[in-house]
Deep mutational scan, measured.
Amino acid sequence: KFGRVHERAEGPAKILAIGTATPFHWVDQSSYPDYYFRVTNSDHLVDLKEKFRRICNRTMISKRHMFLTEEILQKNPNLCSHNEPSFDVRQDILVSEIPKLGKEAVLMAIDEWAQPKSKITHLVFCTRSGVDMPGADYQLIKLLGLSPSVQRVMMYQQGCFAGGTMLRLAKDLAENNKGARVLVVCAESSAIGFRGPSEDHPDNLIAQALFGDGAAALIIGSDPKMGLERPIFEIVTTAQTFVPNGDCHLALHLREMGLTFHCTKDVPPTIAKNVESCLIKAFEPLGISDWNSIFWILHPGGNAIVDQVESTLGLEPNKLQATRNILREYGNLSSACVLFILDEIRKKSGREGLKTSGDGLDLGVLLSFGPGLTIETVVLR
């Protein structure tokens, strides 16, 4: 008597548009150690500064975009301390800036989509910054002038794996609601975790050397309108798992001094060791076991992770080039990073006149991972 209210779509979910945005301000990685130790009044920690310089040199990052300028840091000195309470200051900045950054990426996506924004039916927003109620999803709806009846899902504090999570959720929403057009937004800022150095917490140096700011937005829907919408990728399958006891290797915690970062040297080999089982589960039903026969979007948690995944799986050097390019130009953008790589690989395919948006290949994989050593596996066509 009370059956399904919403009719299912006929076809699989497809990515119809991609937009990205970054803050205008950026830092050069080669000179960042001098800048970082100067603005945090830590130049007296000579040995720690040299250690940080070595870490920065190993990241293979060229530059990173950041909202925090020297002027902002001078006005808010607690942000430059390692342990002073600064959460309220971070909140005041990020509750406002995260939706604005997301808006810039959304406008780029809508411009490519070339359809009225009134056709957006759902919003899925993800960030690890600016936790608030009502959330960044609500603020973004107002900034864009979208209908208050847009169906919203707000996900805070997920971390680097969440780019894949957003695709998984959007696929379910698009395929189970005929005519749905799902706006996916990942907006991230390193301002939540920026803090001064400490000899007692070397993990913090890794975070300060890796993370950048950026937002990515996608429009996802099934059954694209012929002649009006141009699909870029099809989302074939999605899956999530985590490595048992992985939280002892990688975890982040909200504290009075901001978001703290805990990471062990076992993260790269542990991820590399567990990736292939995810690939087998995803691609065995499709008859694929040659990992060089697919295109790759791999989250660059750090250069060591990229190198070890490449080595463990025997990947050809060009397979992870898009990942390395984004890491070099932006650093680790947390949940937004794989979506930047997705954009990079389709643009490169277009520039080179390849037959598909995925490096000329039919199928590919998007792998994202993060806290708890959670792994998201997304098969794309």
Rank of each mutant, 00 (worst) to 15 (best):
L315P: 06
S81T: 13
R346P: 00
S31V: 02
T121D: 06
A304R: 02
R128M: 01
V379K: 15
A21H: 00
L333C: 14
A21K: 09
M60K: 15
S335E: 04
T377A: 01
D88K: 08
N57S: 05
P33C: 03
H122T: 07
L73Q: 11
T59C: 08
K355H: 08
I294D: 15
D132R: 09
S42I: 08
E344L: 04
P317G: 06
S289C: 11
N325S: 13
L354T: 05
P148A: 12
T59W: 00
E7L: 08
L254W: 05
L313G: 05
C248V: 10
L327E: 09
I345N: 04
V5F: 05
F242S: 15
K63N: 09
C56A: 10
I305T: 06
K348A: 00
T264L: 14
R54F: 00
S129F: 06
V243A: 11
V5P: 14
R128S: 14
K319M: 07
F52D: 01
T69L: 01
E97M: 07
F87R: 13
E7A: 09
G258E: 13
K51T: 08
V306R: 05
L250F: 13
K319R: 12
G370V: 12
N78G: 11
K63A: 03
T20M: 00
L123V: 04
V46G: 06
E276M: 12
L144F: 08
W26R: 10
V275R: 01
P116A: 04
D132G: 08
I288L: 05
N292W: 06
K319W: 04
I288W: 03
L366E: 02
S81V: 11
S30A: 15
D290F: 09
D307E: 10
S289R: 06
S335D: 13
G364D: 01
N245E: 12
L333E: 07
F369Q: 15
F52N: 01
A239R: 06
I305P: 07
A239E: 14
G314I: 00
T323D: 00
L16D: 02
D307A: 03
K319V: 04
G372F: 15
D137Y: 05
G372E: 06
T323N: 01
R324F: 00
W291K: 02
N83D: 11
G301A: 13
W113Q: 00
V95G: 14
V378R: 15
N292I: 05
L79A: 00
L146H: 02
L366S: 09
P300S: 07
N83A: 15
K75L: 02
I271F: 05
R381A: 00
C278A: 10
T237K: 15
P33L: 10
M66W: 02
F67W: 13
L79M: 04
D343W: 01
R8H: 02
S62K: 14
P134S: 09
V95S: 13
T121S: 13
Q308H: 10
A304S: 05
R58M: 08
H249Q: 05
A239G: 08
C56S: 08
K49A: 05
E7R: 08
S277N: 15
L367F: 09
F340R: 07
A136R: 10
N303R: 13
D359M: 09
R4E: 13
S30V: 09
L339R: 10
A114H: 00
S293E: 12
I326W: 05
R128D: 11
V267K: 10
S289T: 08
E229K: 08
F52E: 14
E84M: 01
D92E: 15
P317W: 03
L354C: 09
G350V: 15
V267Y: 11
R346C: 01
L354E: 03
Y138L: 15
F295P: 15
I294R: 04
L16S: 03
D343N: 09
L16I: 09
I235S: 01
G3R: 10
D28W: 03
L286M: 06
L327I: 06
E276H: 05
K281P: 04
K142L: 07
P244V: 02
S129A: 13
F242W: 10
S293V: 12
E329C: 08
I61L: 11
P116T: 04
E234C: 13
L45K: 12
L342M: 09
G331A: 06
V5L: 05
Q115V: 08
S334F: 01
L68R: 12
G314A: 04
K355L: 02
A21N: 04
D137T: 01
A109S: 07
A17T: 04
G301P: 15
N325P: 14
D92W: 04
K265V: 02
K100G: 10
L140V: 02
I235N: 00
N76H: 09
S277T: 10
S335N: 13
A304T: 09
I110M: 14
V267W: 12
F87V: 14
N325T: 04
I93N: 11
V5E: 13
P116R: 04
I271S: 05
A21V: 08
I72K: 05
A251H: 13
C126W: 13
L363G: 12
Y35D: 01
Y330R: 03
D307G: 05
I15S: 06
N41I: 12
L252C: 01
D92Q: 11
V338N: 05
I18E: 02
T356F: 08
R346T: 02
E50K: 11
N78S: 00
T270M: 08
S368Q: 11
N318H: 00
V243E: 07
A109G: 09
V267T: 14
L73D: 14
F52M: 03
E112L: 05
H25K: 07
L298E: 08
G145D: 11
L373I: 12
F340Y: 10
E84Q: 13
N332H: 02
G287N: 01
L286V: 02
K51S: 05
R255C: 10
L254Y: 11
A17E: 01
I18V: 03
K75V: 10
I232S: 09
G258S: 05
I288C: 11
L298G: 03
V124M: 15
Q115L: 04
D343L: 00
G314R: 07
N57R: 00
M257G: 14
N325L: 00
S30P: 00
S30T: 14
T264E: 14
D362W: 00
D28Y: 03
G358P: 10
V95E: 13
S334Q: 13
R346L: 04
H122P: 06
L107P: 10
D307Y: 06
K347M: 11
K319S: 00
D290I: 01
P12A: 10
C278Y: 04
I232L: 04
I271H: 04
F24V: 13
V338W: 15
F24W: 12
I345R: 03
I93C: 12
E276L: 04
A322P: 15
D132V: 13
I232F: 07
K100Y: 02
E234Q: 05
G360P: 06
P300A: 14
T241A: 10
M257L: 07
F125A: 05
V309Q: 06
I305K: 00
I288M: 07
A105T: 09
S289A: 06
I232T: 03
D266A: 10
F295E: 02
L380A: 14
L298Y: 13
G331L: 00
H262R: 09
T270H: 09
P23N: 14
T59S: 12
D88G: 10
A239M: 15
Y330T: 12
A304H: 11
Q29R: 03
I345D: 00
I55F: 15
V27W: 02
R53T: 12
F261P: 14
I341Y: 00
I232N: 03
I110T: 05
F242C: 11
G130P: 10
I93P: 09
Y138S: 14
N83W: 10
P371A: 08
M66K: 12
S31E: 15
D343G: 03
Q240C: 00
Q308P: 04
D92C: 04
T377V: 00
T264A: 11
A272G: 08
E276G: 05
P371Y: 01
L320K: 01
P268L: 09
V106F: 02
L228N: 08
V365L: 04
K63S: 13
F52Y: 12
M66T: 14
K103I: 03
G350I: 13
K103A: 06
L107W: 13
V306I: 01
R346K: 05
V124C: 09
D247M: 05
L73Y: 04
L342Y: 08
V39T: 09
S357C: 02
D307N: 11
F261C: 01
G360K: 05
E97V: 08
L254I: 12
